[in-house]
Lab assay of single mutants.
Amino acid sequence: NQASVVANQLIPISTALTLVMMRSEVVTPVGIPAEDIPRLVSMTVNRAVPLGTTLMPDMVKGYA
């Protein structure tokens, strides 16, 4: 089972991601792979991401 990136807090729309905002967790459905966390830092989300939500590729500008 692959770990995915999960929001560690509410991430408001257009917020630049930082390490403290994300954690890795094995979830269903599978989202962005946890090993991509370093790549996600400073990318922005294009929607509000509630606490505990799995980050999907279409939620992060420039990721997909």
Rank of each mutant, 00 (worst) to 15 (best):
N46E: 10
L10R: 11
P12L: 08
P29H: 05
I11M: 03
E25L: 12
A3C: 07
D36R: 09
S42H: 12
P12C: 05
L55S: 02
V20R: 14
T18V: 06
G62L: 06
A34G: 14
T28I: 11
R47N: 08
V5D: 03
M56F: 14
L10P: 10
T18F: 03
S4N: 02
S24L: 06
V20K: 15
T54G: 01
E35G: 12
N46S: 13
A48H: 08
V30N: 15
T44N: 07
P57N: 06
V26C: 08
S14P: 03
M56C: 06
V45A: 05
E35S: 14
V5H: 01
T28P: 00
S4D: 01
T44S: 08
L19W: 10
G31M: 02
V45N: 02
V26D: 08
Q2K: 14
T54W: 03
R23M: 05
T54M: 04
E25V: 10
S4T: 04
M59E: 02
M56G: 05
T54H: 02
G31T: 00
V45I: 07
T18N: 05
S24A: 14
I37P: 00
P50F: 10
N1L: 15
V49H: 02
D58E: 15
L51W: 08
Q9T: 10
V5W: 01
T53S: 13
L17W: 03
I32H: 02
L17M: 07
R39Q: 10
N46C: 05
A3M: 14
A7T: 07
V30S: 14
A64S: 10
V60L: 08
T18G: 04
V60C: 03
A64G: 11
T54S: 04
A16E: 13
V27A: 06
V41T: 05
V45Y: 01
V30A: 15
Q9L: 15
V27H: 03
T44K: 10
T54C: 05
T28L: 13
D36I: 07
S24H: 11
A48Q: 14
R39M: 13
T18A: 10
L55T: 01
P29E: 06
L10K: 10
P57R: 09
V49L: 14
S4C: 05
P50A: 12
N1F: 10
T15C: 06
L19G: 08
V30C: 07
M21K: 02
T44I: 13
I37S: 04
N46F: 07
M59N: 06
N8H: 06
S4H: 00
N8K: 08
N1Q: 15
L19V: 11
A64N: 13
N46Y: 09
N1W: 15
Y63M: 04
R39A: 11
R39H: 10
R39T: 15
I32N: 01
V41G: 00
R47P: 03
V26Y: 12
Q9H: 11
L17D: 00
T54P: 08
M56Y: 08
G62H: 08
E25P: 00
L17P: 00
T53Y: 11
V60N: 01
L51E: 15
V6W: 02
S4K: 01
R23T: 09
N8R: 11
S4V: 01
A48N: 15
A16C: 06
A7P: 02
R47V: 14
P57L: 04
Q2I: 14
L40T: 00
P57E: 07
G62Y: 10
L40R: 03
M59H: 09
S14R: 13
P33V: 06
Q9R: 10
T28D: 15
I13E: 14
V26E: 09
R23C: 05
A16I: 13
G52Y: 05
N1V: 13
A3V: 09
V60G: 02
I37A: 07
V30T: 11
N8V: 09
I11E: 00
E35Y: 09
L40N: 00
N1E: 12
V49N: 02
L19M: 10
D36Y: 14
D36C: 10
V5Q: 01
L10T: 14
E25G: 11
M21P: 01
L40V: 05
D58V: 10
L55C: 03
V41N: 03
V26S: 08
I37M: 10
V6R: 02
A16K: 15
R39N: 12
V60S: 01
K61M: 14
A3F: 09
T15G: 05
M22N: 01
L17N: 00
E25T: 07
V27E: 01
E25M: 10
V45E: 01
L51G: 14
T44P: 08
T15N: 04
G52F: 04
E35H: 13
I37C: 05
S14K: 15
L17F: 03
M56V: 07
G31E: 02
S42N: 13
P38M: 13
S24F: 06
P38H: 13
P38S: 12
P57F: 06
A64P: 12
N1R: 10
S42I: 04
S42C: 05
V5T: 06
P12H: 08
N46D: 09
G62S: 07
T44M: 12
S14H: 15
R39F: 10
G62C: 06
D58L: 07
E35I: 15
T53I: 10
Y63V: 04
Q2H: 11
D36N: 09
Q9F: 10
V27C: 06
A16S: 11
V60Q: 00
M43W: 07
T44Q: 11
S14T: 11
T28M: 08
I11K: 00
A7Q: 01
P38I: 10
L40D: 00
P12V: 04
N46H: 09
K61I: 14
L19I: 08
K61R: 15
R47M: 12
S4P: 02
L51C: 07
I11D: 00
A64E: 14
T54R: 03
M21C: 04
A16L: 09
M56W: 05
L55W: 02
R23D: 05
E35C: 06
I37N: 00
M21F: 03
K61H: 15
P33T: 08
M59T: 07
L40Q: 01
M43D: 02
V20E: 15
V45K: 00
G31D: 00
L17K: 00
I32L: 05
A3H: 11
A3D: 05
M21N: 11
S4R: 01
P33K: 13
M22D: 01
V5Y: 03
V49R: 00
E35T: 12
T53R: 12
L51I: 13
P33I: 08
P38Q: 11
P12Y: 05
L40A: 00
A7M: 04
A48C: 08
S24E: 09
T53A: 11
R23A: 08
M21W: 03
M59S: 06
V6C: 04
M22H: 01
T18L: 07
N1G: 13
M22E: 01
L10G: 11
P33C: 06
